[in-house]
């Protein structure tokens, strides 16, 4: 038995990209401060993307990959090392890494961009010229009504007709007023700060990582997951339970999902703008501690030797979202803390 997995498309061209870099290395007298700074500009043309096509020709997929778009991006990479204190056997260094990057769609080749599902989650190139290359959009949120049902917008009016809301975004795309453009799903600023302290044979270093200026989508309490798959959600406890609750919560009432008026309610609520949050955060990435065993006395039988300990994934120390979520792992558990102790030597 054989099967055809993909259509041969002779019109498909390679993606092309051009990049311009300007950089500079610098160092102060005595090397107290040194580092590099680099500016780049990137242009991509003929990027791959899914396009609607006449599936009468094949039928097995609703879209095909074609050269759909162009992009333009720029950014700055800065790497800064400073020796803060260097006095006798004590030494403190800081390494500061900063990256800034921004990119946007400059051309979308397919005329039918409007026909796409405009509910974006950053997994495809944004089919809107001038917007960030990977972005998040959401249903415009109208709060809960006095029955505890989530409300969206159709033609500028509050609505709980989820089919109509869905149709409105299929027909009118981003312009219809049922959707809101949230922003980029890729951090604009990111990098780390590594501090290293050394006293005699004892050294100590730790890394703080940061990501700023982007958005992510959190999970939602949905009926289908609870009823259909038995997957609970902590939001359940904060749900709407009686009239008046709509002023203090955004979590809808728990209802019997098979009633016709609830068709599409989960789908709307999950992608509503209340679930799009700022992703900015600072993370305690690792902490190392090491003690050098090799000294002048031991040199005869030991070239070098080290006892070390390492703690990794120490968690988030600051985040912009108030719901205590890890923006890097919105759907799963973050990797657990890790501790390592070791001994390393050479003779």
């Amino acid at each position: 038995m054989q099967r055809i997995n993909d259509l041969n498309n002779p019109d498909l061209r390679w993606e092309k990209s051009r990049q311009l870099n300007i950089g500079m290395d610098f160092s102060s007298k005595g090397k107290h401060i040194s580092g590099s700074i680099e500016y780049y500009e990137k242009k991509g043309t003929d990027l791959y993307g899914n396009t609607l096509y006449d599936y009468t020709t094949w039928g097995n997929k609703g879209t095909v990959v074609t050269n759909t778009s162009n992009m333009k991006g720029q950014g700055i990479d800065i790497n800064l090392r400073s020796i803060n204190i260097s006095r006798g056997e004590f030494n403190w260094q800081t390494n500061f890494i900063y990256n800034y990057n921004t990119s946007k769609t400059t051309r979308y080749l397919s005329d039918d961009a409007k026909e796409f599902n405009m509910l974006l989650d950053g997994s495809i190139i944004t089919p809107i010229v001038g917007e960030p290359l990977y972005s998040i959009t959401s249903y415009r949120w109208g709060g809960l009504n006095n029955q505890g049902d989530p409300q969206g917008y159709v033609n500028g009016q509050l609505s709980t007709d989820y089919n109509a809301i869905g149709n409105s975004i299929t027909v009118d795309g981003i312009d219809g007023g049922s959707l809101v453009f949230i922003g980029t799903s890729v951090p604009a600023h990111f990098g780390s700060i590594i501090n290293e302290l050394r006293w005699k044979r004892l050294s100590f270093s730790f890394n703080l990582m940061y990501k700023l200026g982007y958005y992510f989508r959190k999970t939602a309490f949905t009926l289908s997951e609870l009823n259909g798959s038995g997957i609970g959600h902590p939001d359940y406890y904060k749900r709407w339970q009686q009239p008046g609750d709509e002023f203090s919560t955004n979590i809808p009432a728990y209802v019997y999902a098979d009633y016709p008026q609830y068709t599409g309610r989960d789908g709307f609520y999950r992608y509503a703008s209340v679930h799009a949050l700022k992703g900015d955060h600072i993370r305690f990435h690792y902490l190392n501690i090491a003690f050098d065993l090799a000294s002048r006395k031991t040199k005869r039988f030991l070239q070098s030797g080290q006892v070390y300990g390492n703690l990794a994934n120490l968690g988030i120390i600051w985040r912009s979202n108030k719901e205590h979520l890890d923006p890097d792992y919105p759907n799963t558990y973050a990797p657990p803390r890790q501790a390592t102790i070791g001994f390393r030597c050479s003779f």
Binding site: I4, Y55, T56, T57, W58, G59, N60, G62, T170
Partner: peptide, 19 residues
């Protein structure tokens, strides 16, 4: 209505035949 549908599903074996 849009993809997927009877139209797409029936033109798939037709594509295989033509191929």
């Amino acid at each position: 209505y849009r993809y997927p549908n009877d139209w797409a599903i029936c033109y798939y074996p037709i594509y295989i035949s033509n191929f």
